[in-house]
Design a protein around this nucleic acid. Structure first.
Lengths: 322, 322
DNA sequence: CTGAAAGCGCTTACAG
DNA sequence: CTGAAAGCGCTTACAG
């Protein structure tokens, strides 16, 4: 059970621990004969030696770990793409990305008792107190503090809704509803999106839009009937899943999409393209976001400022549902 | 930049490092006056002290980290549920779960140079050499080795396909096709599923089923026409996304589902319930899987054997598409 | 009730 | 070209 240490390797190979360290780390400038190197490597492999990450980190004063804190969001292709790209880019610098699924169960501060990362990457804004604590502990922080500038975070959500409503207005609609998600974890996004819908309706002189929670797993028949009765002719949905439930509701209510009711989603999920009718949606290319995240992390590690968030490249993909 | 250490706290508080450690760790049996405790805590907070995880781990000989290795699969609700439950259960033991998105970019062995987990949890079987290396380094391993018994892993995939085909046969179908995924990351699952379809067709005396890759993001019109021409009356799809593309293909080809073509998916995704027609699918309740995983990890940490995999609770959810 | 000291396993100046 | 020694920051017997 007691692990093999570098001292064991040194003893077995008949050299000093210094030499073992030089060989196994390929320390530049270390002059060790090729024969010795080979002997040390063989011995280490034979004994199944694995260096202690804790000792290494303690001695060097820094680790090769970057922890990415994932809020309690449903994961999917977007989060995957962000993490995959980050993992690849940091691997080139010899760094490993480890993801922490942050849930209410434990305070973030406890995590630093268990692991010392070089940097912490937040996908959502951190509480300001956590940011202070991390910085004080010598951990670089990428991502915004809650109080500071979470507005950029919310604004991009807001803007997706603006695109939806502007598209519907272009199509001639004058009475729009917002179909929001019933997933509590997405409450914050839902609120920002609804604000976008509401603001745009106001700016275009449309009536204040109703906001209705729509489950993704059953046809939104009642909601559709109610909208129709109110004279609503177009629905901006929280995402494609919700939009699909609205399409099903329209079908069940005997309404024709887009003639009786137009529907626009968000995400451009594969299912949007094979819906009946094919779903108009807002696509957010993920590559620029992934590159921005990775670039920001590298910049912070190098002591630079993170670059500004790129212009939001979201766009409407027009299909048959509007 | 130089972090605050426990020695700094001790000096500032006018006590020894021993006392600081006792107070901050609430060491049982340590008799420190309440006044001193309070003073130490205040001082630590004032200085912004954060203990060094590396030193702590080195000294105690074990860390409070469990690393979960995630293969290159698309993430989604199932993986989320597994990780969330594991995170919660281990949090009660004072352990943190960190997830490593394993990609080709770096060898698993390099990871142990950067972090020393108490245990490693694999969702897919590990290469046997990695398992040996981890065990030798004193890391507990939960999950199977590739060579050992990856059959249990593939078998559950196989069985999903059996359920699909048996259901179609019950509905009177005698000629079945398999619509597989085009996602390369799922190749292994696709192969196991096709084997299930093929074996079941053979066992039921049906002709050998064609296997056709179907993209989830466009109507599978050509595939549907070709199946229809061959006399295929039912399709087992890799998952609901693929099944939705088959439904769209049938629509485009002018075929009626389920009269001209029956379709059954896997996953019971929300979109399956709002499809036109509503999609018959195979549901895998995720709770038993999540509990089994968490139980296995706890068992291994306690030095017991992991419990056997629970009886596969997958079942067919019959809707309008078959 | 509190402190001095050892030691976890490594890396890296430094001396030979 | 190689080795003896210091020290990273902690925890924990042990001595007072």
């Amino acid at each position: 059970m007691a692990s093999v240490t570098s001292a064991d390797v040194a003893r077995a190979a008949g050299v000093s621990r210094t030499t073992v360290s030089y060989v196994l780390n390929d320390t530049p400038g270390a002059s060790v004969s090729e024969a010795t190197r080979e002997h040390v490597r063989t011995t280490a492999a034979r004994l199944g030696y694995a260096p202690s990450a804790a000792a290494r980190t303690l001695r060097r004063g820094r680790s090769d770990l970057v922890v990415c804190v994932l809020p309690d969001w449903p994961t999917g292709p977007v989060v995957d793409a962000l993490l995959d790209h980050l993992t690849d880019v940091l691997a080139e610098r010899g760094l490993f990305v480890l993801v922490h699924h942050h849930r209410g169960s434990r305070a973030l501060a406890d995590l630093w008792r268990a692991v010392t990362p070089r940097a912490v990457v937040g996908l959502a804004p951190f509480p300001a107190a956590d940011v202070r604590a991390m910085r004080q502990a010598g951990i670089e922080v990428v991502g915004t503090a809650e109080s500071a500038d979470s507005s950029a975070f919310d604004r991009s959500q807001h803007d997706l809704a603006v695109l939806q409503v502007d598209h519907l207005v272009t199509r001639g609609h004058r009475s729009v509803a917002f179909a929001t998600t019933t997933d509590d974890r997405l409450r914050r996004f839902g609120a920002a999106r609804f604000a976008g819908v509401r603001d745009t309706c106001a700016a275009r002189g449309l009536p204040g839009p109703p906001q209705v929670p729509v489950r993704a797993d059953e046809p939104a028949t009642e909601a559709v009937r109610s909208w129709h009765a109110q004279g609503v002719t177009a629905v901006a949905a929280y995402n494609d899943e919700v939009a699909l439930a609205v399409l099903a509701g329209a079908r069940a209510a005997g309404l024709i999409v887009p003639d009786d009711l137009a529907v626009v989603g968000v995400d451009d999920a594969p299912a949007a393209r094979v819906a009946a009718p094919a779903l108009t949606t807002v696509a957010q290319p993920v590559t620029p976001q992934a590159e921005h995240l990775a670039t920001s992390v590298l910049a912070v590690l190098d002591g630079h400022e993170a670059p500004p968030w790129p212009d939001d490249p979201a766009r409407v993909v027009v299909r048959a549902s509007t």
